[in-house]
Every structure is written in C-alpha cells, then in structure tokens.
Write a protein that binds this DNA or RNA. Structure first.
Lengths: 130, 130
DNA sequence: CTGGATCCTCACTGATACTG
DNA sequence: CAGTATCAGTGAGGATCCAG
C-alpha cells in the first residue's frame, strides 16, 4: 500500500465512487426525504414522486447496504416497513446539503452557460443528423 | 419564472441534477486534475488514466457547456488545445472537495457496513429462481 | 402494503478507424 | 495532437405481474 502522505489519484477515485453512489438518479432524493424523518415505503414513493417501485427498492437496498439507512419491518398485516437515516446517513447529508446549496445558488449560472453554449453551436462541430 | 422563496422538491431535483452531472464516471476526475492548473488534452488523458479519448472529449464538452471549463485552441501545427477551470468550476470544486473529504474519512465505515450486510445475506432472501 | 422476478429499452461507455 | 464518426456491449431504469 501507498504511504499516507499522498492523496491524489487514489482519492479522486474514492471521491468518484462516492459521487457515483450518491449521484445516481434517485439516491439523493430519497436521502433528502428521509432526512426529515423516518418514512414508510409508500410514503417515500409518494414523497419522491416519479420513482418506480423497483428503483425505490433498489435504491433503499443500496443505502441500507452502505449503512446509510436502517430498515425496520413490523410483522403486521398488512406489512409495514419504515426507513430511517442512520448517523452515517445524516453525516453524509451534510456535504450533500452543501453541494445542494451550491446547486441552488448556481443553477441559474449553469443554465445561462448552457444557453450561450447551445446558441453558439447550433450546427457547429457535430454534424447534426436532424 | 420560478419564485425562489421555498426550496423543497424542486431543489432536490436541482441537487440531483448537479449530482448526476458531477457524479458520472469521469467528470470529477477531470475537474480534479484541472483544479491544479490548465492542461492540454493529452496531458489530461494521461493524468486521468484509463479514460478513452471519446469519453474525455465528451466529458470536457459537457463541462464546457455548463461553464465549468474553458477551451483554448492555439492555431498551431500540430494543434494545441488547453483546458482550464473557470471561476464557476473552481467554486464547484469547493463543495465537491468537501464531499471528497467526507468520502476519504468514511470509506472505511461504508465498507464495513457493506461487509456486514453482505455477510448477513450470502445468497439473498429470494432463494431459488426456478 | 411491501417488494421480488422478468422482460425490455435505450443511454452511457468504450474500441476502432478516420480527418485536419 | 486534437477531435469526430461509427459500431457494439453492457447495465441502469422502468413497466408489469405475482407473492407474502
């Protein structure tokens, strides 16, 4: 193993890995909702909106596996399952919120940049097929 | 336009969008490298390592479009193109670095959680398939 | 109500070849 | 050296059906 004094490429990989976990289509939205308190499966599904049952299950599974949420199942009829952020989950929420704040502040700038870019290259380098 | 007084679902979407942009396979790595200074295409390709020329081009295009990097082309032979982070790019780097720091600190915890989870579900809950 | 199993689609990714 | 075009493989995401 490499000594501890350098954290260049390897760290970037780690960052990339975390970002890909957090950066998939639904994870942030789910974690965000759960940040407000424990929720049931259906609650979550409604709250997030637009997520399929499969994706919610998959996402929750991933989060559970990584130790970000806990799954509590009540042996009732009908079944009742609640999900809640762990401490680790809440800690993850902090830097994610920071990024979220950044996103809120700079969405306009990004959109503006996109608009300009798109306006500058309507049929520019990539041969449009359409 | 949208009123900007309340930030609930819409913001989560914005966060998700940013995270997906930043969370793809190469963006963070490229931005991380560029954070150290302007670089040429090939330099970047070598520095990142493992990225195909197509993906590097695609990634850089996306970043350029979103206003995170500038592309400077020198009309020489052979061609020389340099990429550099914009102010917006550098600002994006801050929260991303924060998340990166978090990742560095908590990778062990996540891996531990995964290990436990996987140990608890060696062959899953489903069982047979046919 | 919760969520597993299946099938399907298409966008992302990469290897290769070609241009300027 | 920088970048585009094309083709093909893979897997994430979604719809649906079914079971506990």
């Amino acid at each position: 193993m490499k000594p501890r004094h350098i954290h260049r490429s390897e760290d970037c990989r780690a960052v990339s890995e975390i970002l890909q976990r957090v950066g998939d289509k639904w994870t942030v939205l789910v974690v965000g909702k759960l940040g407000k308190g424990r929720m049931r499966f259906s609650e979550l599904r409604t709250a997030v909106g637009g997520i399929s049952q499969k994706m919610l299950t998959t996402t929750l599974r991933g989060l559970e596996r990584d130790g970000f949420v806990t799954r509590t199942q009540y042996p009732t009829i009908p079944p009742r399952v609640e999900y809640e952020l762990t401490d680790l989950g809440f800690e993850l929420l902090k830097p994610v919120h920071a990024l979220g704040e950044w996103a809120r502040k700079n969405t306009a700038r990004v959109n503006e940049a996109r608009r300009k870019f798109d306006a500058a290259c309507p049929e520019g380098r990539s041969g449009s097929h359409f």
